Deep mutational scan, measured.
Amino acid sequence: MSIQHFRVALIPFFAAFCLPVFAHPETLVKVKDAEDQLGARVGYIELDLNSGKILESFRPEERFPMMSTFKVLLCGAVLSRVDAGQEQLGRRIHYSQNDLVEYSPVTEKHLTDGMTVRELCSAAITMSDNTAANLLLTTIGGPKELTAFLHNMGDHVTRLDRWEPELNEAIPNDERDTTMPAAMATTLRKLLTGELLTLASRQQLIDWMEADKVAGPLLRSALPAGWFIADKSGAGERGSRGIIAALGPDGKPSRIVVIYTTGSQATMDERNRQIAEIGASLIKHW
């Protein structure tokens, strides 16, 4: 067993022997301040990774656009098919120029040779490549099948209805392509620590998230040296922004954090800054 596999296998073990965790309302004060600064709703939840206990939450059962955070769930569904012998990570998928959609920095470079399922998941999570996500959605049967996968996990809230990039439209009061912070946090925890996926697939999923290259201005910008984070960000229309993450000190994750916002007129930089400040408060009061 590799060191990384050992780390993920012992996530519940280490967490069980940690000192009790206590909620700190100071972080919620910052979440509410972010709402004021952005002029928009902000949803927040913080779960203990081992027990699933909610440590703090704000608007945990209000719907927010998922945006690209759905790509972690998508690759979880792909990995479940791999575990069941219905898919192979090494299978190569070929596609054409007509398949390319807006923001496809990886797939646009491989029109000639195609990409493997493993490479597509890596591109979808680490670079948020939209064509990679659409190609992977095709392998599982489309958005409705991802929703069905989530329902089978016990998540009857999260739903995907459309493809990239239309799913980022974020129309107010439109339930399409949305989740709730509580539902997303619980589902992410199941994917990373539950028995739904094999140990190898859980490790692969967290490795992809740990290698995320496009979430630097968010929670990662607030992390002290030595902290662990595996995350996936999302951005959408109407001032929408979000991030889902597993993080913790001492090089291992111990909490799940989900943050979503929508309806702001603020710039992307300002949305990023507010999420980073929430992260800084979380870490300060850990």
Rank of each mutant, 00 (worst) to 15 (best):
L247R: 01
L282R: 01
V29R: 09
I206Y: 15
F14P: 02
I3Y: 13
K213E: 09
A77W: 06
P25Y: 09
D129V: 00
H24I: 10
A15T: 15
A280C: 11
I244E: 01
L55E: 08
D155N: 06
A276F: 12
R273K: 15
P165C: 09
L47N: 03
A124P: 00
D212M: 03
L19Y: 15
G248Y: 01
D33R: 15
A200Q: 15
R118Q: 13
K252A: 13
Q88L: 12
T186R: 14
L120T: 04
S221C: 11
V29A: 14
H156C: 13
M66S: 03
T187R: 01
I243V: 11
S80V: 11
Q274K: 12
D174W: 02
T179E: 00
T112N: 13
T187K: 01
D36E: 14
M1R: 01
I54C: 09
R81L: 09
R118S: 15
W208V: 02
G279V: 05
D231L: 04
G114D: 04
S240R: 02
P165R: 07
L79C: 04
G52E: 07
T138C: 12
M268A: 09
H156N: 14
H156S: 11
H156I: 15
K213F: 10
T27V: 14
L192T: 07
G52Q: 06
F149T: 08
T107A: 10
M1T: 02
T107Y: 01
T267A: 13
D174F: 03
L73G: 07
E26L: 14
G39C: 11
D83T: 05
P65L: 03
I275N: 01
T147A: 07
D48P: 02
P165D: 06
P12V: 12
F6H: 08
I140K: 03
I229P: 00
T186P: 08
A124E: 01
F22H: 15
V8M: 11
L199A: 12
N98L: 15
D48R: 04
V8I: 14
R63T: 09
L196G: 12
Q97G: 13
L47E: 06
K30L: 12
N134Y: 04
L191E: 03
L55H: 08
V214I: 07
L188H: 04
I256F: 05
Q88F: 13
P172A: 14
G154M: 06
I93G: 02
V21M: 05
L137M: 11
M67C: 14
N98A: 14
G154Q: 09
V101D: 12
A246K: 03
E26V: 10
D174L: 04
I256H: 00
F17H: 09
K144E: 15
M180D: 10
K284I: 11
T112I: 14
V257T: 06
Y103M: 06
A16V: 15
C18I: 01
L247H: 01
A23V: 05
L120N: 02
L197W: 03
E56G: 13
I93L: 12
T147Q: 09
F64A: 01
A124I: 05
P253C: 11
D231S: 05
M184V: 09
P65Q: 03
R91F: 06
K30A: 12
T178Q: 03
L219W: 04
I256T: 03
T179L: 01
I140S: 05
E237D: 13
G141W: 03
K190H: 13
Q204L: 14
E175P: 15
Q203F: 08
I259N: 01
G76W: 05
E210G: 10
G263T: 05
L111I: 13
P25R: 08
A183R: 09
M127K: 08
G114R: 03
Q4G: 08
Y260W: 02
Q4V: 08
A266M: 13
S221K: 13
L100D: 02
S240W: 01
Q203V: 13
N50K: 13
Q274Y: 12
I11L: 08
R255P: 00
A77G: 08
P253V: 09
H94I: 15
G194S: 14
Q97Y: 15
P224G: 07
S264V: 05
Q4C: 11
P224Y: 04
D99H: 09
V78M: 09
L73I: 14
L73R: 00
E175I: 14
R238A: 09
F70C: 09
H24Y: 09
C18R: 01
P143M: 04
G242K: 00
F22Q: 12
Q265M: 12
T69M: 03
D36N: 13
T139W: 06
F17I: 11
A230N: 01
P105V: 07
S254M: 14
G52C: 04
A200G: 14
V29P: 04
K252V: 14
P12Q: 10
R238F: 14
E210T: 10
G263I: 04
S96M: 10
E26R: 07
K232V: 00
R202E: 09
T69P: 04
V258G: 05
I3K: 14
H156M: 08
P143A: 07
L160P: 04
E119I: 01
S2R: 09
F6Y: 10
M1L: 07
T131W: 02
V101L: 08
E26A: 13
E61N: 13
K53W: 10
A211W: 08
A182E: 10
M67E: 05
T187D: 12
L191R: 00
S104E: 01
Y103D: 05
S128L: 00
I3H: 12
L219T: 03
P20H: 10
A23E: 05
S57D: 09
N173V: 10
V31L: 11
P20F: 03
W163N: 11
K30E: 07
P253H: 10
